[in-house]
């Protein structure tokens, strides 16, 4: 079965009347890294909360590996590890105690060798006897990761895993997430950093106001919605876009010093050749040119704004 998590018609309205999710459908495939992108308050954390059992759904169903998350919670929760957004730890516990606690809580017998491996992988082994309150923020985040991995989950939820984390640790995290995926763990991460989704994800879902706006393979998404721009830096500034070039929909920017041509990178005929020839014919000279692809960020901003 390709789908590991299957969400159907999921809605959540909090007691305050706030509707966090509106009839949401989504499938998560086995073994993928799925990135859930969305602005604050879009419903990302609520969605994760329902799958993990922290929030009760108002209507709709979620199944994990064929088991309903409400009716058959033991089967589903055993498979899931969660690293929440907030750094919530028992400050007075040692790293060793808290990770072993998590393992037991999720119904697994003690296994010191395995916990040692988790701690070593996360560079926490030297800190195992330290109390959590004595650790740095980055270390605490690793502890939370270790807790989530302590019971060997098949699915790992990372809610904003690299928020407030320095660049080096972020790279480490990414590295580790990839390793986990290679071992067969399915990973769902939410993020504000588009760069992160772009870097990590196999598929991307964009959520806004409790609705999934789209779900797409990352590569397909980027090429489908991706536009390219060609910027020509002119020798001499222009006042207007020259006549006869209207069909190219050019934009004059940078006080008339640059001409920007936007085209669809997927098209066979991009029109660049024609444009350059036409410019040459009119004697418009340029000193430099560069082309750029729109990033996921542009795509994202356009989509969310479009709502």
């Amino acid at each position: 079965m390709k789908q590991l998590i299957s969400i159907r018609g999921l809605s959540k309205t909090y007691d305050s009347g706030f509707q966090a999710l509106k009839h949401l459908d989504l499938d998560i495939h086995r073994g993928e890294i799925f990135a859930l992108l969305g602005p604050n308050g879009a419903g990302k954390t609520t969605l994760i909360g329902i799958i993990c059992g922290i929030v009760n759904p108002s209507s709709g169903t979620v199944t994990v590996d064929g088991h309903d998350v409400v009716l058959d919670y033991r089967a589903t929760r055993t498979k899931i590890g969660l690293v929440p957004q907030e750094l919530c730890t028992d400050s007075f516990e040692t790293v060793w105690a808290t990770v072993n606690f998590s393992r037991g809580l999720f119904g697994k017998p003690r296994d010191h060798a395995f916990v040692e491996k988790v701690l070593r992988d996360l560079s926490l082994w030297d800190k195992r006897h330290s109390k959590i309150l004595a650790l740095s923020g980055g270390m605490k985040r690793r502890v939370m990761m270790a807790k989530a991995l302590s019971h060997q989950p098949d699915i790992l939820f990372l809610d904003e895993p690299t928020a407030g984390v320095d660049v080096e640790l972020r790279r480490d995290m990414w590295e580790m997430v990839r390793e986990l995926r290679d071992r067969g763990v399915t990973i769902i991460l939410t993020t504000h950093y588009i760069e992160e989704a772009q870097e990590m994800a196999d598929r991307i879902g964009i959520i806004s106001n409790g609705e999934l706006i789209l779900v797409e393979e990352k590569a397909a998404l980027m090429s489908k919605l991706g536009k390219k721009q060609l910027t020509l830096q002119l020798q001499k500034p222009l006042n207007n876009v020259p006549e006869g070039l209207e069909s190219f929909a050019l934009e004059l920017t940078d006080n008339g010093c640059s001409l920007v041509y936007t085209f669809d990178a997927q098209n066979e005929q991009t029109g660049i050749g024609t444009l350059l020839r036409t410019l040459a014919e009119r004697g418009i000279d340029f000193k430099n040119l560069h082309s750029s692809e729109s990033s996921l960020e542009d795509i994202f901003v356009n989509l969310v704004r479009g709502r």
């Binding site: 922290i54 089967a75 929760r77 899931i80 969660l82 919530c88 730890t89 999720f106 807790k147």
Partner: peptide, 17 residues
């Protein structure tokens, strides 16, 4: 205390009745 510090998330998401 777990409610106060937020660590209750783990108990709520654990396979315990």
């Amino acid at each position: 205390f777990p409610k106060f510090t937020g660590t209750i998330y783990e108990i709520l998401s654990a396979p315990v009745s």
